[in-house]
C-alpha cells in the first residue's frame, strides 16, 4: 500500500534537488538518490514505488530546474499532492510525466498514512484514517501527457503517428 510523505508550505526546488548537482548529475536514477535530500534525508532511501508526496502551498517554488520533478518521478513517486504549486514546477511535473494534483483538503493526511490516489476520479482514499478527499481531476489533455510518460515521449508518439 502506498504511503504519504507529508511536508509543509513553500518546499523549494533547492531542497527537492540541490543546485550543486544540477550540472553534474544527468541520470534520473542518480537524481532519485538525492531527491528531497536537504528537506528529508530519510526520503530517498525509504521511498517506495507508488508513494505520494503531500505538501502545503507553493510546492516547487524557486528555480525553473526540471530535475526537481524528474528526481521525484525517478524515485517512484506516483503523484505530488499540494494545496498549490509554483507554476513552473507544475508544468515541469506534468511534462515529466509526474501527476501534480491541486487539493485543498490535504491537512487531514499525516506522514506515513496509507493512501491510494485515483487520478481519473479525483479522489484520495486515506486507508489509515478511513476518509476520502476529493480534488478536481487533472484535465484530459494533461493526463494524456502523463500517461505517455511526459511531454517528449508524448510528442514522439504523435510525430510517429
Amino acid at each position: 500500500m502506498p504511503r504519504a510523505w507529508k511536508y509543509g508550505d513553500d518546499v523549494n526546488t533547492d531542497v527537492i534537488f540541490p543546485g550543486k548537482y544540477t550540472y553534474t548529475i544527468s541520470d534520473p536514477k542518480e537524481m532519485a538518490e538525492h531527491a528531497l535530500e536537504d528537506l528529508d534525508p530519510d526520503f530517498a532511501g525509504n521511498v517506495r514505488e507508488g508513494d505520494i508526496v503531500v505538501a502545503g502551498k507553493n510546492f516547487g517554488c524557486g528555480s525553473s530546474r526540471e530535475q526537481a520533478a524528474v528526481c521525484l518521478k525517478a524515485a517512484g513517486v506516483s503523484a505530488v499532492v499540494a494545496k498549490s504549486f509554483a507554476r513552473i514546477f507544475y508544468r515541469n511535473a506534468i511534462n515529466a510525466g509526474l501527476p501534480a494534483v491541486v487539493c485543498e483538503g490535504v491537512d487531514s493526511i499525516e506522514h506515513g498514512d496509507e493512501v491510494e490516489i485515483d487520478l481519473k476520479a479525483g479522489k484520495i482514499i486515506n486507508r489509515t484514517k478511513g476518509v476520502e478527499i476529493g480534488f478536481t481531476p487533472i484535465p484530459d489533455f494533461m493526463m494524456e501527457i502523463i500517461e505517455d510518460g511526459g511531454l517528449l515521449p508524448h510528442l514522439k508518439k504523435q510525430l510517429n503517428r
Binding site: 513552473i88 511534462n95 511531454l151 517528449l152 504523435q158 510525430l159
Partner: peptide
C-alpha cells in the same frame, strides 16, 4: 511567460505548447 527547457524543445519541434 517563462517555460522549461523540455517545453522549448517541444516548441522548436512542433510550434505548439499547452
Amino acid at each position: 511567460a517563462g517555460i522549461g527547457r523540455t517545453e522549448m524543445a517541444a516548441i522548436w519541434a512542433t510550434g505548439h505548447l499547452w
